[in-house]
Design a protein around this nucleic acid. Structure first.
Lengths: 238, 238
DNA sequence: GTGGATAAAAGTGCATACAGTTTTTGCATG
DNA sequence: CATGCAAAAACTGTATGCACTTTTATCCAC
């Protein structure tokens, strides 16, 4: 069994950045909730799963740890990060600022092609609305990431992308199943506001949207799933 | 010569995160301008210099690349990143937002000990005012990083720290020798405003301060040192 | 059974070896 | 004397091996 060499198809010569490939796969698995906060990510298994050595898997984990998606402690197995409630709040605060910048740069400047691209994503969100929840969340994230990419500003893109993924992970911890995304309409309104509107108006709408997402998830359920011993035992300690 | 085993003193047993040690050293070298944008960082030399294998050096470079301080391209030697002018501008824009958050959280809440700590840094800045320029820049950066640390918010601390280092690197590219930091007084005023003042006022002062630093460096010298072939040859192409 | 020592298993930390890829150097040629 | 071009040197990409740590499983006393 161990000797099976599956996936030997690809050229295997100059494998175009396999670390990045693993990162991409894991990011997606995390945002779609195929992986949950706290899940273990042993280097061996990871490497075997992707057909690479531990070296590569380890490097990918390091990268994801730098992005705040993975928790890496010395001599310990890596785990999907488990953001605290405070972390989640801070992540959303920063996200608001960053995305406001995105909107400011884009307001009134979207090309027709860009509008079409964004609308397509929202359309996909609409389709996925009753399917697996993970897909909805991924598409919602993709909407914001794509928006950032349209600024063409590498630095801004990098930070927005990272913070969006972290926000998605935070939601996995603190939002309960069905409170997540009724936000499809809000995305449509956003497109319209950015396309036509003055920057201030569009920014305000983005603020509102993000604050709504955060509230739906964070405020009302602060610790809904927080399997913290203290909370669980609270009713019993009298 | 090659066989010399210097630095064999330390226990060598369970070296407490040597990757982080290298990162710290390089970050500091970069911010102090001992390393300049574009300088080469071969894994071998780096490893030898720090008494570790290429594995560790490589990992450190990966980390710094994730922070935007190092440029890493496949099969190519790593170099200290060379931010473009647009990057620099975007970095400062993001910095303003992040540091505004810091100030907002801290306004009116600094303890006496914290004020003392900050004042000590500014004092050191004052001392270093006529010494090596690199030291001044490091201390100025340290002031902002320490401020962020006082919020106790890990996420915010991480992003502010990273963006401050990137800003420092940007200044290395775009600010000319003596335009950098006359900002010692501004730091003192900031401490005072944050200690006493209402959040809005302190935020405004921080905005002003950062905008001033950016202007002194970025606007007036847009490309002063941009050793871009196109610029250098422009006068000759008629 | 329950607690607890202890040995096996599973994993990480790191150096090293080797294959493949630039980059440099040295040399012959026009 | 510039210009290719080919061989050597310098580096990176990745797998693997071994030491050390943590976790899990085992077994024995009580």
């Amino acid at each position: 069994m161990a000797e099976e060499k599956r996936e030997e198809k690809r050229s295997r010569k100059t494998g175009g950045d396999r670390v990045a490939a693993i990162c991409t796969a894991l990011r997606r698995a995390i945002i779609e909730r195929a992986l949950s906060p706290g899940d273990r990510l042993p280097e061996d298994s990871l490497g075997e799963r992707f057909g690479v050595s531990r070296t590569i898997a380890r490097s990918a984990l390091g990268q994801l740890a730098a992005e705040g998606l993975v928790d890496l402690r010395r001599n310990r197995i890596a785990v999907v990060a488990v953001p605290s409630f405070e972390d989640a709040r801070d992540i959303f605060d920063i996200r608001v600022d960053l995305e406001r910048q995105v909107v400011r740069h884009l307001a009134g400047k979207l090309t027709e092609a860009q509008v079409k691209q964004l609308t397509a994503i929202v359309e996909a969100e609409h389709q996925a609305r009753h399917g697996a929840e993970g897909i909805s969340i991924r598409l919602a994230t993709e909407f914001h990431v794509r928006l950032a990419e349209m600024t063409g500003k590498p630095v801004l893109i990098r930070y927005v992308t990272e913070i969006c993924y972290r926000a998605g992970l935070s939601l996995a911890v603190f939002s309960r199943p069905h409170s997540s995304e009724c936000a499809v309409n809000e995305h449509l309104e956003l497109i319209e506001a950015i396309r036509t509107g003055p920057a201030d108006k569009a920014c305000a709408l983005m603020d509102e949207h993000l604050e709504a997402v955060a509230s739906r998830a964070l405020l009302q359920s602060s610790g809904a799933r927080s399997r913290d011993l203290m909370d669980i035992l609270a009713p019993y300690t009298e």
